[in-house]
Design a protein around this nucleic acid. Structure first.
Lengths: 134, 134
DNA sequence: TCAATTGTATTAAGTACTTAGTACAATAAT
DNA sequence: ATTATTGTACTAAGTACTTAATACAATTGA
């Protein structure tokens, strides 16, 4: 993992998101070990307290389990992981549509632009006048 | 405008974004007047200093002009507005693709999910196993 | 001319995030 | 048993964001 952080959001929140994504995408399989608080703090070059806070949130989400003195592991509840993944994906989709609507692109145009960027065909509507979708 | 703010990002940044979107979408036409610092502070129920800071950033973006004692107006540089709109839209598209990739969806699946949510047809891949796209 | 409105500047205080440094309890490994 | 590693807890300090409360300069408009 790279552990690069933007400065427009708390670091602990970005650690939560990056680990969560690793779990949801299957990069960190169910039951696999996570780095210790101190090890991750060294690797990501942040304070141990910040890592601790991130882990606490991941536990409250149910995605991570703590074993008193033998570190943390990814949850083995595959159902939960899949449910969170579905919900997160749905949220991203809706946020994208809302963002594009704010920019004056309707849903069909958003799909076109995405398909185009995804390497599929599609004529560009990027230069078109904004639609009034309010 | 509604002026609702999330608590995970500075308020001034959210004001910048909402006004910027209004300009980029054409809701606030070129040359149109913007509310005064005090008026917007009242309307959005935030401190005038916070509004002032947001306006300063909009000016540095070139989207807003200040007239010493007669308020602020949207820039009349239509070329700039369109350029920013294109760049912003492209950024949203790329962020969405990156987010979906982190969740284990490839570009084609991202397009499918978006088309589905946009009201068009398309079979759901939301429940599928994550693809390893790293 | 005069009052109101506008942008702007300043100081002070409170909260959240982050870092630094230290310490303790529990358990795994030797 | 002893050592090392783990999670956890705590205090202190610095920075950024926000609010509050004023104040001043410039210009508009009656």
């Amino acid at each position: 993992m790279e552990w690069a952080f933007a400065d427009d959001r708390p670091i602990y929140a970005q650690i939560v998101e990056q680990i969560e994504m690793g779990i949801l995408s299957g990069e960190c399989p169910a039951g696999s070990a996570l780095p210790s608080v101190r090890a991750l703090a060294l690797e990501a070059e942040v304070n141990p307290n910040t890592v601790q806070r991130a882990f606490l949130e991941l536990e409250s989400l149910g995605l991570v389990r703590t074993h008193r003195t033998s570190g943390r592991t990814v949850t083995e509840d595959g159902e939960l992981v899949m449910a969170v993944r579905r919900r997160t994906a749905q949220g991203r989709v809706e946020r994208f549509l809302a963002d594009m609507r704010s920019l004056g692109f309707d849903a069909a145009q958003a799909v076109s632009l995405l398909a185009e960027a995804a390497g599929q065909q599609g004529c560009s509507v990027l230069g078109s006048e904004p639609k009034d979708v309010r």
